[in-house]
């Protein structure tokens, strides 16, 4: 299970970073989203992967680690705010300079 999880994370990060390095804003935002998925899963997994161990007192015999869960929960919401901010920043810069290239100008060559 650990190896499977790790490999999946690796593929997600690879895809995310590749998109992050593209020249247009939209793929960059998609890359950011993918990376934040991976990072959230990674942080979450620091409390170890357990099935049937919900952290609700009295509902199961063993409990997963609730702390990474609480951290990731807010991270997901803040991640949305960050994505929104990036997208709107991109829209604004499109409105100002008329291109969605990350450098704010169309490539010259």
């Amino acid at each position: 299970m650990e190896a499977l999880f790790a490999i999946t994370l690796g593929i997600m990060v690879t895809s995310g970073v590749y998109l992050l390095l593209r020249a247009r804003v939209f793929p960059v935002v998609m890359g950011l989203t993918l990376i934040s998925y991976a990072v959230n899963l990674f942080i979450f997994s620091m409390g170890r992967l357990a099935t049937g161990a919900v952290a609700v007192v009295g509902h199961s015999e063993r409990y997963g680690d609730p702390l990474p869960q609480a951290l990731v929960l807010t991270a997901i919401v803040i991640g949305f705010a960050m994505t929104a901010f990036t997208v709107v920043l991109a829209l604004r810069s499109m409105g100002e300079v008329g291109t969605d290239h990350v450098d704010g100008q169309e490539p010259t060559e």
Binding site: E2, A3, F5, A6, I7, L9, G10, I11, M12, V13, T14, S15, V17, A38, F42, S45, M46, R48, L49
Partner: peptide, 13 residues
């Protein structure tokens, strides 16, 4: 980057 994250995750888990 992906390989590194995968190795790191595996090593920790």
């Amino acid at each position: 980057c992906g390989t590194l994250v995968a190795l790191l995750a595996y090593a920790v888990l």
